[in-house]
Design a protein around this nucleic acid. Sequence first.
DNA 1: CGCCATTGAGGGGTAGTTAG
DNA 2: CTAACTACCCCTCAATGGCG
Length: 418
Amino acid sequence: MYSSNNMADDLHHIPPMAASSKTMASPKYKKAPDAPKRFKSAFIIFSAEKHKEIKARLAEDGRVEKTTDIAKMVSEAWRELNPEEKEVWEKKARKDKARYEVEKAMYKGPWKVPANKRTPKDPSAPKRPMSAFLAFSNKRRAALKRQHPDATNADLSKMLSKTWKEAEPSLRQKYMDEEAELRSHYKVEMAKWRKKVAEEKRIERKEREALAMQAAESRSNEVGMKPPADGAGGQEGMQQQFAGMYNMPYGVPQQGLHGDMGYGGGMQGQYPGMLGGGAPFGGMNAPMGAQQQLLSQLLAGQQMNQFSMGGRPPMMYGQGGQGGQPSSGAPGTGSGQQQPQGYGMPPQGMGSAGGNFGMDGNMSGGGEGQMPQGQGGYGGMQGYEGQYGGAPQNYQNNMGGESAPAPGGDDGYQRANL
DNA sequence: CGCCATTGAGGGGTAGTTAG
DNA sequence: CTAACTACCCCTCAATGGCG
């Protein structure tokens, strides 16, 4: 549950691009290990494969090159690609970017952690085994202390170090064998512990999902929404892929998130104003231009929101509503109420059918105006757009998008505050 | 409660590339 | 600045117990 509105706490909710080095002068920060991994560029995806390939090929010839030299070969190979070949990688990059947008939207945890600090060791983790030298030291330290009563432990350590280095190899070996045994035991214990932690996380995730589902269902009943006839597979896909990895603060994507990239269904539609194919917002099938536009606008909206409103996380999943009529631009049926809560929250959970992003509205025109719950929130981006005009209040007016305001748009928010 | 002083395994950061 | 790759380098942490 998100409850703080102080700025320090908001650090944990600033997506990477907003967390500029300016604001993070000292101490330095690095990406939080659990935060969604940034999208990969076409070159990086290419590089990952090509690097392996080149390395393997060199190995066949018995050659071993430095990583940095292989990187140069990868670079050269990249430059030699013709546009058609490049397009293969660029397509993958677009897909990964969509993946990132979804993960980012769902992520609630910290984006940055102090760079100069290691992640603190989990106290429940097994301890490291004692090294051969330390075991040797333990055995001899007390006796050595009796011989040199005035020596400090630091002094004793120096002496022990010398003795250790000069010790008979067979004696050292004895300690090293002991260490090896301890270490193999440690590895077993670590494996068990890791498994246990993973299992706990899995259970926690399941519980969270169940809770979210419950909340979503009760809300769905309240507003009398019906499950979608088509394109309803999304929930599963999304949850499997993303839910649980991240907390879901403001509501849960309910439907339409099937497919490998979530956002189930469609975005099959064409550009704004055009009638699309009807599947709800499925991102991957959309014409790339439209998709990129969507994504970049989404991103822009989020950043706008953070900067202007103090860093709320970009969240906009919630229950979607009924879309409007894209061809005419006629408003849909929903209201998509917004509750800023003093943070300048993004229009969460706004109707899926939001105009600009269109699930049903401008962009996709799909679904015949019927948006399954949870599609959404993208309608909310309209609200962001309102900000371009300068007035944050536009959030409220724009909820759900001009061409297709969506009912139930506030749902995500409500669930978030359960 | 952190520091000191030691060795050595293992984890994390870096270099080199391009693109966003 | 961050994505992937990985060899290499640097830092942390294992135990000990007196001291500030």
